[in-house]
Design a protein around this nucleic acid. Sequence first.
DNA 1: TTGAAAGCGCTAACAC
DNA 2: GTGTTAGCGCTTTCAA
Lengths: 358, 358
Amino acid sequence: MTIQAKRSATIEDVARHAGVSRAAVSKVIRDAYGVSDEMRLRVHASIAELGYRPRAAARAMRGSSYTLGFEIPSIRNHFFPKIITGALAALAGTRYQLIVAPAGLDPDGARQAVQVLIDRQVDGFMTISPTLAPEWFEEIGQRTPVVMLGRHDASINYDTIAGDDIAGARLAVGHLRDLGHRDIVHLTSTPEAEANIPSAPHIVRAAGYERAMTELGCGDRIRIVHVEPNEGASRDAALALLSGDERPSAIFAGHDELALGVLQATAELGLTPAEVSVIGYDDTDIAAYPAVSMTSINQFGTRMGQIVIELLLDRIAGRTEPVHEVIAPRLMVRHSTAPWSGGASRAHTDVRQNELSE
Amino acid sequence: MTIQAKRSATIEDVARHAGVSRAAVSKVIRDAYGVSDEMRLRVHASIAELGYRPRAAARAMRGSSYTLGFEIPSIRNHFFPKIITGALAALAGTRYQLIVAPAGLDPDGARQAVQVLIDRQVDGFMTISPTLAPEWFEEIGQRTPVVMLGRHDASINYDTIAGDDIAGARLAVGHLRDLGHRDIVHLTSTPEAEANIPSAPHIVRAAGYERAMTELGCGDRIRIVHVEPNEGASRDAALALLSGDERPSAIFAGHDELALGVLQATAELGLTPAEVSVIGYDDTDIAAYPAVSMTSINQFGTRMGQIVIELLLDRIAGRTEPVHEVIAPRLMVRHSTAPWSGGASRAHTDVRQNELSE
DNA sequence: TTGAAAGCGCTAACAC
DNA sequence: GTGTTAGCGCTTTCAA
C-alpha cells in the first residue's frame, strides 16, 4: 500500500462513520423531511469530524447544483460589480452559491460564457447580453431559469429587469436642456446598434434621447454618433466632434466609460465644463469620485442585483409566468469641486506613462 | 405521451445517432488516441446536428471538469479585473473555461469562495486571499492545483505569483524622497495586519516602506496607520492625519482605493498637491484617469493573469515542484493636468448626492 | 480500432 | 423514521 494524499470524504464515508445509510446523510444535509433529531446530531458530528463537503458535480447529476451563474460581458465595466454586490447580499443565508462567467475576449465571448454556465448545470443564471438573440434565451429558458438584465424583452420563458432607459435618457436630455443646451449629441455603442435587438438598453436609450429631444424642442438637432464601447474610441470620436465645424455644446454618453473618454477629449482640447457639458450613464464609482465629479444617471445596480436573485429563486421554486421589472433611474448632478487648478506648478518629474495595455 | 421541453442531448444520443458506442464518442470529444478519421467525422456530424454539449458535472465525476476557478475578494477592487483580463487571454484556445467565485460579504467570505470552487471540482484555481492560512492551501494543494496571487509564501504544494512589494515600496518612498519629503506616512490595510500572515502583500509593502525610510535617512519618521480597506475609512484617517498636529507632507497608501480616500481628504481640506503628495499602489484605471492623475505603482496585473494560467496549466499537466514568480513593479508618475479650476462658477443646479450605498 | 461494462458521488423513489 | 436501490452522464479499463 503506497502513501497517497487522502481522498476527501464522500457521503458514503459519513454514513459509515455515523453508522447510518447514505440516504439518511443526504436527507440531513438537505434538511429534508423525516429525520430524527438524534440522527441529525450524529450525522452532523460525523460531517464535521470528517470535513465532508458534498460534491456539486454529483448533486448536479441527480438534482440541483445549488449554484447560480452570472454571465457578464467586459469584466472591466465598473457597473457590473454593483450588481454582483447586490446579488451576493441577497444570496447570503440561502444555500445557493454564485459563480461568475466573464465573457472571453473573442467576438462570441458572451454566448460562450452563457454556455459555460449551462454546461456547469447551474440551477439558474442571470445574463447581461445586449447582443444575443432573444430566441436563444427563450429556448434555454424552457429548461433553466434565466433572468436577463438591462434588456426590455417581451420574453415568455425568462424574466427581465432593466432600468427605465427612456426615462433615463429623458432625465439626461432634460438636465442639459435646463442648462440651456440645444446642440446635444448622443454617443452610443456600435456593437449594440449592429446587433439589431430593439430592446437592448443602448438602443432604447438612443430612442429615448430622440424622443426627449423632440419633446423639448430640439428635434432638429438630433445627432447620434456610434463608437466602439471603450474609452479610447470615445475620446477619438469626441475629439473629432468637438474640433469639427458643428461643435455640440453638450454630449450625452450611453455609459460612463464613453463619457470619460469625452471628458478626456475636452481636457485635451482645453474646453471648460461651461463650454461643453458631459453626462454619462450608470453612475459608476469613478463618476462619483470627487476629482471626476461627472453627472450621470444612477441605475441602482445594487438593488437590481438583489431583485435578480429574488426572481431567480422564484423561478427555481416553480414560477413560470415571466416577470418584467423596470427600475426608475435617477439623475445624479455633480460639479467639479477640485480646489486646486492646473498642474503647471506642480513639483513632479515628468515621466511619460507607459504604453502597455494595463 | 405528453408534450415536454425536449431534454438536451447526451453522449448516448450522439452515439445512437452516429451508430457507434458511447466510448467512441467520448474519445472523439476529448480527441483521445485511437479513432479512425471516418468515425471522427461521423461523430462530429452527429454532435453538430444534435447540438450536443458534454455536461461538466458528469465529466467531473470521472475526470476533469475542464474548469479553472478564480477566487477574488472584494469584487469592487479595480485591480482584479486586470488579472482576469490577462487570464482570459491566456485561456483562449485551450479547452479550459474560467469561472470566478467572488467572496461574499461576510467575514469568512474568502474561505467560502475557495470552497465553492473546490466543491465544483475545478481542475485548478487561483486565489487572492491575503488573510487565509498557508497551511490550509498546502493541504488543498496536495489534491488540486493552486496558484496564490500577491503573497510571497514559501509554499510547497502550490505556486505563488506576486509583485515585488519591497521594490514597489522602495519606488514609492524613493519618489517621495526625490520630491523632498521626509514626513512620509504609510497607510495600510487593517484586516491584513491582523491576520498575521507575514507574506501578505500589504505586510511586505509595509516592511518595504520601513526599510526604504531607514535607508533613505528617514528612519526616525516611520509612521504606519492602519485603516479598513475602503475609501471612506481611508478618507477619515487622512482627515485626522492631515488636520492633526504632526501633519505629514506625503502619504504612501497601500493601494489605490486608500489613496483615493486620501485625495478626497486633501480636496476637502483644500490642500494642494504641493502641500501634500499622495501615492497609491496597483495603478488602477481610476488612478490613470486624467482628472485624477494619481502617481501609483504598476503591478502589471494583465501579465500576472497570463502567467497564472500558465502556472496552473503546468501543474495540471503534472508539475509538482512549486514555482514562485515575482514581478518587478514600475512607478507611474503622474501630475494633474486639469485645465480648468475650481467649480465655483459652473452652471449647475445644486442637487445633493443621494445616500444610497450605490 | 471499437465496444461492453463498471463506477464516480449523490438523490429520489420506494420498501420496510 | 430509516435503509435499499436504481440511476444521472460521463470516462475508463479491458476484451473483442
